[in-house]
Write a protein that binds this DNA or RNA. Sequence first.
RNA 1: GGUCCCAUCGUCUAGUGGCCUAGGACAUCACCCUCUCAAGGUGGAGGCACGGGUUCGAAUCCCGUUGGGACUGCCA
Length: 484
Amino acid sequence: MPNGPRVRFAPSPTGFFHVGSARSALFNWLLARQSPTGCFILRIEDTDADRNREEWVEGIISAMAWLGLDLDEGPFRQSDNVETHISAATALLEGGYLYYCDCTGEDVQARKGDTKTPGYDGFCRDRGLSRGPTAALRFKTPRDGVTTVQDLIRGDVEFSNHTIDDFVVAKSSGAVLYALANVTDDRKDAITHVIRGEEHLPNAPKQILLWSALNDVLGDDVALPFYAHLPLLVNEQRKKLSKRKDPVATESYRDQGYVAPAFVNYLALLGWSPRGDEEIVPLTTIIEQFRLQDVSHSPAFFDVKKLSHMNGEYLRAMSSQEFITACGPWVSPWLSAWRPTDRDALWSERQFDAALFARVAPLVQERVATLGEVPAMVAFFFLDELPIDDAAFDKVIGADPLGQALLAAAVERFAEIPWEAPILHAATVELGEAMAMNLRKAQAPIRCAVTGSLVGPPLFESLEYLGREKVIGRLQTALAQCSA
RNA sequence: GGUCCCAUCGUCUAGUGGCCUAGGACAUCACCCUCUCAAGGUGGAGGCACGGGUUCGAAUCCCGUUGGGACUGCCA
């Protein structure tokens, strides 16, 4: 059986699950899914104990599950492999590829009077230091020659070895650092393609050097993986998306009511595009058409507006039943296994009426871009005390005698007609005509009195679903407020 | 500063030497539809950073300039 690509997504759990990470994970996953024998691995790179938190690990796993990026192997934890990392470092040291260095950061900085040397100047390379409590292990980077990164997206990228410093491989504490740990694990997992963000491009030559040194001292000949460095995701200032300053938490998009298929579709469009003019395409098409060599070279701006538009398209493409179900966590969180965080329900379990919501849902389905917008739009159906937009009220009722007159007429008329949307519609037209108001004008005071707002779902259906009693009650309440 | 990457409408992109009068999508503007708001429809404005080459021909290839970015940790 021919082996498909083995790819891994290797995040470090140091914060919320970044949208850039989500895209890296997606592109890795796509490559794995293109082949029946492809393998997608999640490896949590948690060797820096000071910065990792277990809740971030859970965040990564649940966000990936939400996106549908299923694993073939893992999740593995890099911290489970520290023994292997240490023995790799030991082998490298014995093979003459590493040396001990006890320089402090200040020492290194102080010697950097001449600007020529990149990073560390190799001060300890020939001092023959041995292991000690303050001695870190550095890699003896070749002084000459060139290391070429064969990048599937960018082509060959050459680094002169003299521009690469003798980087630290293991801390004085003995802990093996990213460059070596990552390479060691990639060898262990038989990774064939390393697909990651462009910020890792400068790491690639170091890791290639480490890889062949390991082949040498371990006496095996593990094939170097293919590399592919994805363009960065940037903010409006064209800077790399920052965890601190930019809205990058994938979880927060889920909380806002973006749906996974839309989110995945949008993510795929960042640096890649499907054939033809259609951008909203099913995942199967994306898997089918995706090619690393087609990935763009330049940074992409994460455009929430476009995401929202796509999400709206996905929402509208749902059946009513699917839409109603999808709204669950936002309209009836007490019934959901998962619920959005930091979003207080607008109404209580007692006030909510599932059957009513099912009738109302189609009215809002084509009016929202995210599920998070749904509660506010339908709140007037469930709330006992209606929040009223004061400016709207003044405009069409409070400061408008005609509006008040229409309301008063509506109270009488609505009491005696059959309670159906088309009839309510016709009655409102007539009421308006009697006062020289077109329907556009005539519906406004009713809408405001009943829904508290000048904008919202279609009015007459809303009146029908709300029921005669509540509607007339609200009309009277509004009228009473004018005389008060 | 050094190393490296990048450069098509405001944004994401199509474009791999003639199909380009540069296509699509989001955003934006106008109009239509319409009980509000959306959705939908139609139309408009808007781009190859600049300068040199190569070529019969360049958005596409080469060089330079300019601009942007990443990295430069005993983080990943």
